[in-house]
Design a protein around this nucleic acid. Structure first.
Lengths: 217, 217
DNA sequence: GTCTATATGAAGATAGAC
DNA sequence: GTCTATCTTCATATAGAC
């Protein structure tokens, strides 16, 4: 038996807009839960069918292969991520600190709201072929580029103070990603508290301050 | 075909002390590479045998099951991690900032030196049963507790300024973990540069500073 | 310890009735 | 669209010779 849960969340939290009607939606949701908990290779078509309340053959009336299920989930996850950070940036001005706060809050918020989508879309991406992953890979690249651009602009304007922009991107993007594994609605802090705290941490990492100009740099 | 590598590293970097002599070591190393690249469930005994240069049945002369291979790799990974952060702390004094720098440098260093061990020991932990994972789970807990203690002590002494110790632990521990996925010896920065930069980021997150006491808090 | 050969079950996927 | 039944391949693991 495995006592170690891969992620703390137990609900898929799929929105109506993510979920096709009827059995197709049940199948997609069951695949999401099982891929998140056991990984793509660790979840079988038979298990997905049982969780969705259909027989294995029924899955193939809706999706041509197991990999197509993964592709759909990865696409939804990365679309949700791109959509949320993109919308957040549209709602804030030209101030680099505001932009980082908006990005990180949206990014973390996506990972607390849709932890299973986030885990599958990131941790199972390696199982996705180039053919089926085109949209997903493009979205992923665009979301990351937004963060790169915010930080690079802040550095250019001396609002931020980091020597290696990509390392800051890796840290700030990665810290949001990790949230999907441990966050659950039962956690002692609210999703908003987590998002706000992470935004504060991101600012601390990036912000030029007197103490960040000591002799060790 | 999958163009997306799960991690950038291509070498196992297993040390002689990690690797049993003879076929047993070849098998363990092959399992490490395949588990890291494809996940535990995605790698088969047949593939591991082929990569190790033996026949599938030979594996069972050395390990009673596939899960025992995983258990051994997880144990080695978490032992290496515990050993490295523990040693780093023994080599530094009572200053909280020094302790964080030592911990993060060692933690990141472990993840750049043994990325495959780190990926398997963390990302595949959910596939490990409670029975075979006892040692691993204990080591994991101890490594994390060290970081908790360092940060809590720094907060108690007003050297650090964070409201939620566990969030800081999650961020600082998680940022080291992520390094295992993207770091490779071909990366433009050296492992030492990455470790030093991450230690600096950790200090920025934690350090009490004038700018960290603004009205937003 | 390593092999050949194989037992046994589960995997992804399909055929064809309804 | 969904089912029963099944094809084919692959999985983990074992038996037993050398």
């Amino acid at each position: 038996m495995t006592l170690n849960r891969r992620l703390a969340a137990t609900a898929t939290n799929l929105l109506p807009e993510h979920k096709p009607p009827g059995s197709r939606g049940q199948i997609l949701e069951a695949a999401l839960k099982l891929f998140a908990e056991r990984g793509y290779a660790g979840a079988s078509i038979r298990e997905i069918a049982a969780a969705a309340g259909v027989k294995p053959a029924t899955i193939y009336a809706h999706y041509p292969s197991k990999e197509h299920l993964l592709a759909e989930l990865c696409r939804i996850g990365h679309e949700e991520q791109y959509r949320s950070v993109h919308a957040a940036l549209l709602n804030c001005g030209a101030n680099s600190c505001d932009q980082i706060v908006a990005y990180v809050q949206a990014h973390v918020g996506m990972h607390t709201t849709f932890p299973m989508l986030a885990v599958v879309a990131n941790a199972e991406l390696h199982a996705l072929s180039a053919e089926l992953g085109t949209t997903t890979f493009a979205l992923r690249q665009q979301s990351e580029q937004m963060l790169v651009d915010i930080i690079q602009r802040g550095v250019n304007n001396d609002v931020f103070d980091v020597q290696h922009v990509w390392l800051a991107v890796a840290v700030i993007g990665g810290m949001g990603l990790r949230v999907a594994y441990w966050y659950s609605p039962e956690y002692e802090l609210s999703a908003k508290q987590v998002a706000d705290t992470y935004a504060e941490y991101a600012l601390r990492i990036l912000a030029a301050s007197p103490l960040n100009h000591g002799p060790t740099r």
